[in-house]
């Protein structure tokens, strides 16, 4: 295999991983605060539709991305109101959000099916982008890819280096204890849910503005669910989310190439690998938990209704 092909494959893997990283890093923050939002797919797909619609109307990719973020925020606010404000069941609310998002995205995107725009511009730095190998791999991407990298680093810093991040992790671990200490449990959770929505919306916008620069209904194709799996697979660690997304993205690319190369393995088996790996990761996590402690946020998915 020549150098060019390797380089091309690596770039493809990176672009396939970007939407997963974006959506998963947002969900990671929400889950670290103790909220399980199964509506990632819905927020993502509405973000894709809204992003494309806004970008087409305004002609600006940046405004399109903002539209995607806004769509994710809107749905997340609804979810936060239900689950954090009204203590509704998180599983059912998340599924409602997914269905609502899929429906709304169809409505928003109805007028845009079949349209095409130029993909988001790739960065071109005079010297760096022209470097052999390193250049295209590191310095030739669109802004979304860098946003994803920035978010991973930012969330890592926030969770492990900032006081606000510490509060958020503590709230996800034990809402009763932190409430007794006077921390604002519901406010922090609501903000974490909003952040998750914004990231999912951005991930959707990446799909319709950069990855495949057009809108088609249901174009997220289950990536929101994979992002959810990825968070668990990464045991709620930001850097591992990035690594896992590259692995999952790699599996997708590998599957395409394996099919093209006519390898014996059925493509479906490769496609199933992320899901099976997630189940195995869950099993490994629970085996590890037996020695005490837990890598999952202990309050994840549990309803909190303070008495005063």
């Amino acid at each position: 295999m020549s150098f060019d092909i390797v380089q091309m494959v690596l770039v493809t893997v990176l672009t396939a991983a970007t939407p997963l990283i974006l959506a998963a890093i947002g969900e990671l923050v929400a889950e670290r605060a103790g909220v399980l939002n199964l509506g990632v797919e819905g927020m993502m797909v509405l973000g894709a539709a809204m992003g494309f619609a806004v970008a087409t109307q305004t002609g600006s990719t940046l405004l399109g991305a903002c539209g995607g973020v806004g769509a994710g925020l809107l749905l997340a606010a609804l979810f936060g109101l239900l689950t954090v404000g009204l203590a509704a069941n998180q599983v059912a609310s998340g599924l409602a959000l997914t269905i609502l998002g899929l429906g709304l995205s169809g409505l928003v995107g109805a007028g845009y099916v079949g349209m095409k725009r130029d993909p988001a511009p790739h960065l071109h730095l005079p010297v760096l982008s022209d470097l052999p190998v390193v250049g295209p791999l590191l310095f030739g991407h669109d802004a979304f890819v860098y946003a994803a990298a920035f978010l991973v680093a930012g969330v890592w810093w926030f969770l492990w280096r900032s006081r606000a991040g510490l509060s958020l992790r503590a709230i996800g671990d034990d809402h009763t204890a932190t409430h007794a200490l006077g921390l604002k449990v519901r406010k922090v959770r609501f903000l974490a849910v909003l952040f998750g929505g914004a990231c999912a919306g951005l991930a959707g916008a990446y799909l319709s503005l950069a990855y495949t620069p057009f809108w088609s209904p249901g174009m997220t194709a289950g990536r929101g669910w994979i992002a959810l799996a990825l968070v668990v697979f990464a045991s709620w660690q930001p850097v591992r989310v990035a690594a896992g997304a590259l692995l999952f993205g790699g599996a997708t690319v590998l599957q395409l190439h394996a099919q093209a190369a006519g390898l014996g393995l059925p493509g479906q088996l490769l496609s199933a690998v992320p899901y099976l790996a997630t189940i195995l990761a869950l099993v490994a996590l629970s085996l590890g938990r037996r020695q005490g402690g837990s890598s999952a946020p202990a309050a994840l998915g549990r309803v909190f209704a303070p008495s005063r």
């Binding site: 819905g42 509704a88 609502l100 995205s105 109805a110």
Partner: peptide, 16 residues
């Protein structure tokens, strides 16, 4: 898609 949005909305409202 209106139907789907309606169904999602309905479930959200019932949960609320």
């Amino acid at each position: 898609d209106l139907t789907r949005a309606f169904q999602g909305l309905l479930l959200g409202l019932v949960l609320g």
